[in-house]
């Protein structure tokens, strides 16, 4: 993995960018999520979550199991307004 490796594909964020935020003092999953948008895209962090946890663990010297994750929020996967409102959607 190089510094340029993209770890959040939805928001187009590289390892280097995440390390920069950590160096600037953002030390929790939630803080980095809010300032960088990591994990806020369509996949809701399914790929980047574990990478960010590893980076935070490395920076803090903690075990990855000690890193708090961001809240898991509904919906579990993307669903359109029409399906929820019970109206026909366009194909």
């Amino acid at each position: 993995m190089s510094e340029k490796t993209i770890i959040c594909r939805c928001e187009d964020l590289s390892v280097e960018e995440i390390r920069d935020w950590i160096d600037k003092g953002y030390r929790s999953f939630d803080e980095i999520k809010r300032i960088s948008r990591i994990g806020m895209g369509a996949c809701q962090g399914r790929t980047c979550r574990r990478h960010l946890v590893m980076e935070l663990a490395r920076a803090s010297g903690k075990d990855p199991s000690e890193i708090d994750l961001a809240t898991f929020r509904p919906p579990t996967k993307p669903i359109n307004f029409g399906a929820i409102a019970g109206v026909d959607q366009d194909a």
């Binding site: 895209g41 369509a42 809701q44 809240t71 929020r73 669903i79 359109n80 307004f81 026909d88 366009d90």
Partner: peptide
């Protein structure tokens, strides 16, 4: 047209 649009997250 929003009927076709996907919701990603709610808070």
């Amino acid at each position: 047209i929003m009927k076709n649009v996907n919701i990603i997250r709610q808070w």
